[in-house]
Structure formats: structure tokens, C-alpha cells
Amino acid sequence: MSDPVARAWAVTRRTFGATLLGALGLAAVETWPRWAFWRGAASSLDALAGLPQAAALKALGRQAQAAMAIPAGYADTLAARLGDEGYAGAVARDRAEGRLVSIDGWLVPETQALAGLWLASAG
């Protein structure tokens, strides 16, 4: 193999390797629930504001504030769940365990309801 061809192969291998490493790293980040959920937020609770459906959850949270007694320490409960599994994981666990609550007729996984309360309380 001539030197120019060998150099080209070496560059190709390095480029491919770097790309592969980058992809693996990105996948790791995306599949690590807490990191994926937090991203740039200061805390797991702050990260709730970045959810695509945050505005809707906040509307339900406000309805819950008006319609029912707010469980004491709900924010701590919520933060612990989010810290353990991230938002999607915690909601999925609610579904798997049948933890659904009713807010003015809306049937909602418990973590989503708590998230709505938090978002509503944050103004």
C-alpha cells in the first residue's frame, strides 16, 4: 500500500472511530433518564418547565389547586421520583402500577398530576 493511501485509510479510521464514540456518548446521555430529563436545568423540578406538554400540565395543576387538597410534601415526592427515574420513567412506572388520579374528571398518572401542581405553583 502506498503512503498516501495508507494515510487516507488512517484518517478514515480515525474519523469513523470518533463518530462512533460520539454516537455512543450521545446515546448514553439520551438513555440516562435523569440526565436526558435534566439537560441544562438547575434541578429535576426546574426541568419540568422544559417538557413539551408543560403548559397543559400546568393548566391541570391549577385545576387541581382549585379543586382538591394539595398533599403535603408533594414536591419532595416528585423530586425523588424524577431524580430516580426521570420524568418519563416515573410516569411509566405510574402506568405500570396503576397509579392514576382524577383531577376534575381528568384521569392522570400521579407523577403527571404532581408535575402539574409544581408547574402551577411556580407561577
Binding site: P52, Q53, R62, A66, D104
Partner: peptide
């Protein structure tokens, strides 16, 4: 959809978000 303020907030979310 619920109380008027909930309806308005959901309508706004419907307008701006993926819900």
C-alpha cells in the same frame, strides 16, 4: 374540558405546543 380558566389554558397550550 373543565373550568373556564382551565379551558383557556388548555386552548393556549393547544395553540402553542404539541398537545
Amino acid at each position: 374540558f373543565g373550568a373556564p380558566e382551565t379551558v383557556n389554558a388548555l386552548a393556549a397550550a393547544n395553540a402553542t405546543g404539541p398537545v
